[in-house]
């Protein structure tokens, strides 16, 4: 029983990482109907930037904030300079550009920072180290969950209580009408990309102490985030967050009791396929009905 509780809690902790990345994916998808396959590699790149800043002697949280800012600007710049210029909106065009970015960021990470696995410092495992909650979770897992929840809460407040958040929701829901009431829809898309990149950076920085940092660090995590986003509903940010946590738990329990660790990625494939077969709109999404 303790084992089950332990697996569930640690599943929730990694689930937070999937939830952040899933939310980033949904943010882009809602606004542009585009699956950003490069989201994971962008996050890895941001994590390397954070590590470089920390190694340069900056205090952890200042490096953290600076990385978020850098990622935000990077996301905005990518949307403004690249994606909005793309004329070909077919699957080939949008997926192709995302894959191009994936390749570029992956190779840049390796090129600039090296291919060897690197350790990443955790701000939570200071002097009084040791596990918490009766040995269930490491200090880093608890701290990571806290940070993830805080960031998700901030994102929620931003969309719920600020005018800019409202404008972004409006632009995603109905771009034409939003334009008519004076919202600059193009900029809200760029803002969405920026926020998504920053969220990805949080996920990358938080998970790096656990999985170690290398250029392919986020590939598996991105897959779980896809599964989470789809499970919750590709159209529903809150759903994606819940889906992310759920996938974390499913992955951990499945890995421990069902398929073993060497088929964990297959589990993500199974979740994606099952959701598409049984409930393509996800648990909390609305089915898309086209008006003819």
């Amino acid at each position: 029983m303790t084992g089950l509780l332990h697996q569930t809690l640690s599943g929730l902790a990694t689930g937070g990482i999937y939830a952040s990345l899933a939310l980033a994916l949904v943010m882009v998808y809602r606004a542009t109907r585009q699956i950003n396959f490069a989201q994971g590699e962008m996050a890895t790149f941001s994590t390397y930037v954070a590590l470089t800043l920390i190694q340069a002697g900056l205090p952890y949280w200042i490096a953290f904030a600076a990385t978020l800012l850098f990622s935000f600007v990077m996301g905005v710049a990518l949307e403004r300079l690249l994606l909005r210029k793309l004329a070909d909106h077919s699957g080939l065009g949008t997926v192709g550009v995302a894959i191009g970015l994936l390749l570029i960021f992956n190779a840049l990470s390796g090129w600039l920072f090296g291919f060897t696995e690197k350790g990443f410092p955790s701000p939570f495992e200071g002097a009084g180290g040791g596990a918490l909650l009766g040995g269930m979770l490491s200090r880093h897992e608890v701290g990571m969950t806290g940070v993830t929840l805080l960031v998700l809460g901030l994102v929620y407040c931003f969309f719920r209580f600020t005018r800019l958040g409202l404008a972004m929701r409006a632009a995603a829901a109905n771009p034409d009408s939003s334009r008519l009431v004076g919202i600059r829809v193009g900029w809200t898309l760029a803002l969405g990309w920026g926020l998504a990149a920053a969220l990805g950076a949080v996920a990358g920085i938080m998970v790096a102490p656990i999985v170690f940092l290398d250029p392919n660090m986020m590939l598996g995590i991105l897959l779980y985030a896809f599964a989470g986003a789809l499970l919750g509903g590709a159209d529903n940010p809150a759903g994606a967050v819940i889906g992310g946590f759920a996938v974390g738990v499913i992955e951990n329990l499945g890995g421990a009791y069902l398929v073993g660790t060497d088929l964990k990625l297959t589990l993500a494939l199974v979740i994606i396929t099952v959701v598409l077969v049984l409930r393509p709109a996800g648990l909390f999404g609305r089915a898309v009905v086209a008006r003819v």
Binding site: G96, L101, A107, G110
Partner: peptide
């Protein structure tokens, strides 16, 4: 390390 960057940049360039 060039192949990755080259591949990616070429992919994006061709699509444009």
């Amino acid at each position: 390390n060039a192949p990755g960057v080259f591949y990616g940049a070429l992919l994006v360039a061709i699509l444009f």
